[in-house]
Design a protein around this nucleic acid. Structure first.
Lengths: 157, 157
DNA sequence: AGTCTTAACTTGAAGCTTCAACTCATCCTA
DNA sequence: TAGGATGAGTTGAAGCTTCAAGTTAAGACT
């Protein structure tokens, strides 16, 4: 793939790259820290429960969750084992398709989400959206969409 | 911090948030995968060597590297131990200040960076900058800068 | 029916990160 | 100048993620 004379980044690109690199380290770390400190749960695990809480019957198939959370099935499976051990979700085989596993949020799990959502939302607001203009929010969506779209395409190709 | 009636995200914000969340999962994973596959090294470890390769005398203090890479000293220390074991860096106490440790890239380490840089650069180009207009590059820098600035401030405050 | 392949997970080990505790050096202050 | 505080870094254990291998179920082919 690489040529003998790669096109290096120009000054603008370099600065943007540094910014993006820092962003993708610091933002997840900050959100994770908030949730761990205030709710004793990691960001990934929280997101899983949040997805479940919004789903029909608070239930989703493992593979649906893997897509939503952009994670491997393996990572998801380990995470769900943790959540199951804490009594926040249950898993059972889908009666209509034996190789699908359905995960359901328990009452306790739902309560946990409801309890920790405001603090998390505050963090997202104050770190991200309070800092950006409306225009920047739109730009951010476009930029993220383009990059993620490319990644998804490249790995399937 | 959280009020009883948090301000939820509106539709635009929600989409932007989803995009940003996916971006900060997928982009690091994609870059890490490229480097691991093509150069048998992780993205974080690679970045450390890249920083060193650009520094005066290919040498930096551990704490300088921690700032540059936005990582904890602990994470850095473990990573440097890996790189040291592979013969790519050396560490020694700063003669002029006994509590500073200076890390230096070895010849082998420099060669490793030179060898793997083009492939990594290609990935960054094709995933990020080939997808964005000049305007978007500028926007990205501004957006990332604002968010990271806030995070840095909040944790020091 | 019997075998082959693929899909949807699960598991255990290895690797990386985080956290808390510790060491050692330097600075400050009385 | 002794004693405490702070700064820089290391270490080991615990937790999380990734990777490779294994399991079970559903189609597909013969």
């Amino acid at each position: 793939m690489s040529t003998d004379d790669p096109r290096w980044l120009d000054e603008d690109e370099r600065r943007a790259w540094l910014g993006l690199a820092h962003l993708s380290i610091q933002l997840p770390a900050a959100l994770d820290a908030q949730l761990r400190r205030d709710a004793d749960i990691g960001h990934f695990d929280y997101m899983l429960m949040a997805w479940l809480s919004e789903a029909e019957g608070r239930t989703l198939a493992m593979s649906e969750m893997a897509e939503l959370s952009r994670s491997s099935l393996s990572r998801l499976s380990h995470a769900m084992k943790r959540l199951e051990a804490r009594g926040w979700v249950t898993r059972c085989p889908d009666p209509s398709n034996g190789r699908v596993t359905l995960a359901t949020l328990t009452e306790a799990g739902y309560a946990k989400v409801v309890e920790s959502a405001p603090g998390h939302l505050d963090a997202v607001r104050s770190l991200v959206f309070d800092q950006l203009s409306e225009a920047e929010v739109t730009q951010l969506e476009a930029i993220a969409g383009k990059i993620c779209g490319t990644i998804t395409h490249q790995s399937t190709t």
